[in-house]
Design a protein around this nucleic acid. Structure first.
Lengths: 216, 216, 216, 216
DNA sequence: TATGAATGAGTATTCATTCAT
DNA sequence: TATGAATGAATACTCATTCAT
């Protein structure tokens, strides 16, 4: 279950807090994308958010809070979008569908994912731990899909294999974003999904066989 | 062939430059690992290297130069170690061996790889481009192994598949380092290699079959 | 008409900017007088101005800006004071009066004039050009006085002579400040004005005649 | 009589000291001209002089010593050249000749004079006092010429007038250099000498008369 | 004598954070 | 609540000077 890590605000009005923080996050993401967390100043964030530096600090305590809010928000969005479709069938098809769905989410949220991916480690202590937990939760989404397949007898793989599989899927999703300078030059998201799925399900040998079969 | 990107030093003695820069790199890696590039000061780097801030600046021009030297050195080490064994057979076995070899290098150079992986993007412009090129070269190492297999008829996969495979291998190597907080809790490097190799070659379905076969 | 060269401030309130910059200029002049521009630190300037180093940089961009503000302010003061009396008669008397007036301004603003005189050339590029232009404008004040005399038939000298005369007057004014270590030991400002005026109007030969006449 | 202010050198060989210091002065002047004393580094001076930083410090104790040597050397050169012709006649003609001679020296040594003029005040304490004394000596050269005229009955002016005259001549000479950005745009050295001499001897009124006479 | 590597005090500038209005 | 002026700790980088070779 989700443990909320709350950032203290001086302002009381919850609705306002959410509104201002969303302005903040939007501004921060676009800045972090361009210059990274460390090279972005709080003044810039305030400006990009559309209010003054004084106001910024009414809604956060430290600059790191902004990064945390950004990361947290991105995770939540990815998760929310991921769970927006039904993937509970527990079939290989639904696993494939989950991968397809996730990769497309990453593709659409590329900037956000990239930012989070690159800057999250600038977080310290508690915030970092919290974010890592969130990440594990996301890996957990895939573990769940896989476990259902196993429970349904569609797959017969052990626990360790399940875990690694989930990690691989998660990382391959991110990879589409953080290695875009290489991958996206030669490949569309559709092709990427196709290739990775084939490889994931059939392995290199499968590649070979497929080709052989296709050749007949 | 490698394009050298040289960092200007005020000192003339080439041998001394190399010695001092190595001290520098060693110190910097251990600091970057702990605090990251941005939170590490030049004075700390100098101290960790065993000389004064003035001396540090006899061997570099800017703080970013240190990061560049660190990244460059790590790439070179990985590459050198990778090519220290013969992998030219062009068989699936030699591909497997290459993966095994690479994963073990990453495992042994975990700290370095992690640092480079996390901080390289703090580089700007030319330096970043140079490092990305180096990274492509490393991916290229695997493309080569794979291509040999294809040429020998051991594999029949197309160009795009080759490329993606190479990327996957490269990233899975790094992943062992950058996701150690998750992976290394449940898995040794031997197991990791075994699992990833199996998955890579046979895919999920292979997992299943293996288990079936193993069960008989 | 004066081309304003504006120094960027982070602070918006124009009234405050002027106030703070005046504090700054006052502090800077007294420091520059003692130690020169280069040996004065920005921290010292901030302290002398009565605020923190951070605040100093809210009102300027670089240390050189301080020097520019100092020079600019001094020119403006000299000019303003110079034009505070009516010198438009276009008679030799009014030229004499102008010289007298200017020399007394320089005398009263000795420290400022000395500072500007000695440090202005530490300015670079645009700022230097701007200051030189201001200086030419001040020379222009005398050219104007002289031209009026010529137009009124009180003087019959050509353009080149007018220009040189104006330069001489301007420099002799500054000279009272920058050679004070020599001149002010043997001479009051009244005497200096008397002597320079006599010499300017009658030349060495005039000196002689005067003495002769006086001797009779 | 000249009080020698000696700069300590570690090297004993007097001939070598002179040679090295001359190299040093030449290099320093050209650097000071371009960047000023404060912006020139000792390394640059050593390089411009043609030897290493270590060697530089074998011949001086501090950076200020270099400036002192430069100033001293320039004064000496000006003086030596000034006394290279016979000006002892004690006539107005020889005074005029002295002025002509001095102005041409300044014209030829423009860079040096400008450097000394602009940077000398960066000297501290003893060195500054010494240089000011040298400057007074140079003013004294003109006082001497003038005194001779007075003694010969060619001029009848009092002591104060003599002194001021000498200062004016000295400063007008330097002025040709330090205001070259204005004067040298509209005037050759010949014209400058002519104009200043006329003005000095006849004053503004003389200008007028000259023109009147010339006009008849 | 000549060299140039080593030193570290010194300095301009930035920027997260606070707080009076 | 919102503002933005004020703060000063922190930091990259420089450069005069020394000294071992």
């Amino acid at each position: 279950m989700t443990v909320k890590r709350t950032i203290k605000a001086s302002v009381k009005d919850e609705r306002l807090i959410e509104k201002r923080r969303n302005q903040m996050i939007r501004g921060a993401v676009s800045l972090f994308k361009k210059k990274g967390f460390h090279r972005t100043t709080t003044r810039e964030i305030a400006k990009a958010a559309g209010f003054s530096i004084g106001t910024l600090y009414e809604y956060i305590r430290t600059k790191e809070d902004v990064l945390f809010l950004v990361c947290d928000s991105i995770y939540e969005q990815v998760k929310e979008r991921f769970y927006s479709i039904d993937l509970k069938a527990g079939t290989l098809e639904s696993l494939k569908l989950g991968i397809d769905h996730y990769f497309r989410i990453v593709d659409e949220m590329q900037d956000e994912v990239l930012v989070m991916y690159q800057e999250a480690k600038a977080l310290t202590n508690g915030a970092l731990a919290y974010v890592l937990k969130k990440e594990l939760e996301m890996v957990g989404m895939f573990e769940e899909l896989i476990r259902r397949c196993v429970e349904n007898g569609e797959l017969e793989i052990n626990n360790e294999q399940q875990q690694l599989l989930a990690h691989n899927i998660f990382v391959q999703g991110q990879m589409w974003g953080f290695r875009r300078w290489a991958l996206q030059k030669t490949c569309t998201i559709d092709e990427y999904i196709q290739l990775q799925t084939d490889l994931l399900f059939s392995g290199i040998k499968g590649f070979k066989k497929q080709v052989e079969v296709g050749g007949e």
